[in-house]
Design a protein around this nucleic acid. Structure first.
Lengths: 219, 219
DNA sequence: GTTACGATCAAGTAATCTATTGAATAATAT
DNA sequence: ATATTATTCAATAGATTACTTGATCGTAAC
């Protein structure tokens, strides 16, 4: 059995899986989910050296998870198609359902995920259109500017404390962030609630919103 | 930043991905998709030593992709929930769409996949109920006996040549197998067509059929 | 041209993964 | 009890992976 064609195929699939087999690369993919990024910018976001980030990106590219284009002296990387997000979603779901460790981290750190009943895209859209809620984008300013939910207000998490007056305390706040496990929105909801402001999280993040074909704004 | 909680979480997800990062383990998962199996039996199917298979299985178990139970002196492993199949499906899809290598193998070996327009579950079910087609299960006898599509005929691929007379040449044959990349059904369709018998493949395999909640038979 | 900057490459080290071997358990059959 | 069969454990060698460092290459600005 000199490597059957099936195994050859599986070897290719396994290579894709291996590419997902590193926490930093998953982090990189989440950031790319926000939109195109250059290597250096990404490196700063994920806290790795440029060279290292470049290598991770090349690996991801080799297995077809991301693609790149040159823009002047920058090389911009982006996710290659929506099925990458689907794959990540499937991976997260298995983890959340099948791995006790994940559950522990979620419950322990993320202040009990279920407590913060997540708001679905549909509900957010409806209540936002009716003017019933404040949609809060807690990502850094540069990410917000590239793309955000329609009508969203941007207060990066670090500034939330100091800019609390900008939030209308009479309305419920729905916070969102990069993805389903982005810490920022969990923290934001917790902080707002401590101030007595009604707050919930959107069920996932901007990339999933975009993948669902829902409208976006750019400023 | 002493490993943020997000990275800790991603590390768990990455561990799951790494578990999928080996062709043999994907093979094992495909076989487990057929149903519960003991270690030795599996080892024989996937062509690995018992010890090695055991280790792979334990790894898969550690990350929540499979679970096990004892039955007498056997320890039976099975997939842990349907989302594992979903994850595999997502992985396959990314590979098929984004990786040129995969496409090459598919076209090269599998006699041009698109040529054999795959039959959907719904179409198979309908045409089978109307008695218009022969549903052919080309997996080994033991797998067939555990579970198979209703009304399916079992002729393992190796026996197809010699048992060709059992196939009604007036009807179209729909062959299926273990999963979307199971070689057997591709081969079977090719062999049948060479004999002038109309034949197509089901779009994927038995595990996906079961996961879709469609009826099964046991003999 | 020269300089600056973003990105990649090449080489090296420590850590991890794969498969093998042979020994150790665990349950059943005699 | 003892033997048998199924599975796991422990130790190991060889391959692969992650990250660092410093050199190199491409493009744009001066």
């Amino acid at each position: 059995m000199s490597t059957s064609p099936k195994l050859k195929l599986y070897e290719e699939f396994a290579a894709i899986a291996r590419a997902l087999g590193n926490a930093h690369r998953i982090d990189i993919l989440e950031h790319l989910g926000q939109g195109e990024r250059g290597v250096d910018a990404l490196a700063a976001k994920v806290g790795l050296s440029t060279a290292n980030t470049s290598q991770h990106l090349q690996l991801l590219k080799r297995v077809g998870l991301v693609e790149s284009r040159r823009d002047g002296k920058y090389i911009l990387y982006r996710l290659k198609g929506d099925n990458v997000l689907t794959l990540l979603g499937a991976l997260f779901e298995v983890g959340e359902n099948n791995l006790a460790e994940v559950d522990k981290v979620l419950r322990g750190y993320f202040h009990k995920r279920d407590d913060m009943e997540a708001v679905s895209h549909a509900e957010l859209l409806k209540r936002s259109r009716d003017g019933l809620v404040t949609v809060l984008d807690v990502r850094p300013k540069d990410e917000f500017e590239m793309d955000h939910l329609p009508g969203a207000v941007n207060i990066p998490l670090e500034e939330l404390e100091s800019r609390l007056s900008e939030v209308n305390p009479a309305q419920e706040v729905i916070a969102y962030c990069r993805g389903p496990y982005c810490v920022l929105s969990f923290e934001a909801v917790a902080a707002l609630r401590k101030r007595g402001i009604k707050a919930r999280r959107m069920e996932d993040g901007l990339p999933e919103w975009r993948a669902a074909g829902l409208p976006l704004e750019r400023s």
